[in-house]
Amino acid sequence: MTLSFDAAMQAFAPTLPLAVGLSGGADSTALLLACARRWPGQVQAIHVHHGLQAAADGFEQHCVALCQSLGVPLLTERLDARHAPGQSPEDAARQARYKAFEAVTLVSQARVAIKSIAIAQHADDQVETLLLALSRGAGVAGLAAMPARWERAGVAWHRPLLQVAGEDVRNWLRLQGQVWMEDPTNTDERYTRNRIRAQLLPVLDAAFPAFRDTFARSAANAAQASELLEDLAVQDLAQVGVPPQITLLQSLSRSRQANVLRHWLRHTHHTTPAAAQLNELLDQVAACATRGHHIRIKVGRGFVVRVGPHLDWYNPQVLVP
């Protein structure tokens, strides 16, 4: 159910001390302001200077001034968030931002033992994430979109505004008389997320006024299904072994083979197969009936290969001593 900004913040109960990710935009400015008022002396801000646009220095200056006015310590991390070939700029910036948060958190632990980090994604961001996942043909893990809470690097991470509409966040901020910075890239419709925001959300709002709530329920259902599949994958991997034994894999249904192989590759080798790669691998597992059957399939930066009775994965760019 969509909540007001005040109701969402009232329900937010992190373990203190708390760090708030602060970009200087409306959402993170509102989140920091509300947290600083509620837990004075227990909140600090983390600002990531991406170095991707000319406006970045202005964002940093705004964050410095805001934190000084609130009496909130500000930790700034500068980084190079340029994207790698084949990676979207948004994903590169997001991954770099989380790494920067973790790095700053580790440095600050010597002074203040940060227990929680809050970031300011809201209900509209959740809808955009779900629509992006649908456009890419994602499975239930992708359709689960963004969790409201998770553990990473020994710290509890929170998204307390996931049930608040973006415009409600801005309206609350206007009532406080607080200014914020506008990211000039937010109106650049070369980025898919911006096209969704500008073109699709107004249409959804007109056709399905409750779409934020219904989409959130779908994401929650997908998250539950993803958790069940993860539990099943753990059980099946214990049965087929690490590395997986081919004959034991063949005793599972094709769907369970796909589930356990994705789990094995992601957790053991930190790589994820594309749908076509996984289907080819499943076909080869099904056809593997003789000792001489050869398997070598590109997955990520490496290859899944047959080694005797097992499957294995290796990266040819990593030299084995």
Results as ranks from 00 to 15, higher is better:
Leu70Thr: 03
Gly71Val: 09
Leu74Gln: 14
Leu74Gly: 12
Leu75Val: 15
Leu75Ser: 15
Arg78Val: 14
Ala84Asn: 12
Ala84Asp: 12
Gly86Lys: 04
Glu90Ser: 07
Ala92His: 03
Ala93Thr: 12
Arg94Ser: 11
Ala96Glu: 05
Arg97Gly: 08
Arg97Thr: 09
Lys99Phe: 07
Ala100Asp: 08
Glu102Phe: 09
Val104Trp: 03
Thr105Val: 09
Leu106Trp: 09
Val107Tyr: 05
Val107Ala: 14
Arg111Cys: 10
Val112Gln: 15
Ala113Leu: 13
Lys115Asp: 11
Ile117Asp: 11
Ala118Arg: 12
Ala118Thr: 13
Ala118Trp: 12
Ile119Cys: 12
Ala120Pro: 12
His122Val: 10
Asp125Tyr: 04
Val127Gln: 06
Val127Ala: 15
Glu128Pro: 00
Glu128Tyr: 00
Thr129Val: 00
Leu131Cys: 03
Ala133His: 00
Leu134Lys: 02
Arg136Ile: 02
Ala138Asp: 06
Val140Asp: 11
Gly142Trp: 00
Leu143Cys: 01
Ala145Trp: 00
Met146Lys: 05
Glu151Met: 15
Arg152Trp: 15
Arg152Gly: 08
Val155Ala: 09
Val155Asn: 09
Ala156Lys: 07
His158Gln: 03
Arg159Cys: 02
Arg159Gly: 00
Leu161Tyr: 03
Leu162Ser: 07
Ala165Asp: 11
Gly166Gln: 09
Gly166Lys: 15
Asp168Ser: 12
Val169Thr: 07
Val169Asn: 01
Asn171Gly: 03
Trp172Gly: 01
Trp172Asp: 02
Leu173Asp: 04
Arg174Asn: 04
Arg174Gln: 09
Leu175Asp: 10
Gln176Pro: 02
Gln178Pro: 04
Gln178Ser: 11
Val179Ile: 10
Trp180Ile: 06
Trp180Thr: 05
Trp180Asp: 06
Trp180Leu: 09
Glu182Pro: 01
Thr185Ser: 07
Thr187Glu: 09
Glu189His: 02
Tyr191Phe: 10
Arg193Asn: 00
Arg193Lys: 08
Arg195Asp: 01
Arg195Ile: 11
Ala198Gly: 12
Gln199Gly: 07
Gln199Tyr: 06
Gln199His: 14
Gln199Lys: 13
Leu200Gly: 05
Val203Phe: 03
Asp205Thr: 14
Ala207Arg: 14
Ala207Trp: 13
Phe208Ile: 15
Phe208Tyr: 14
Phe208Thr: 15
Pro209Gln: 07
Ala210Gln: 13
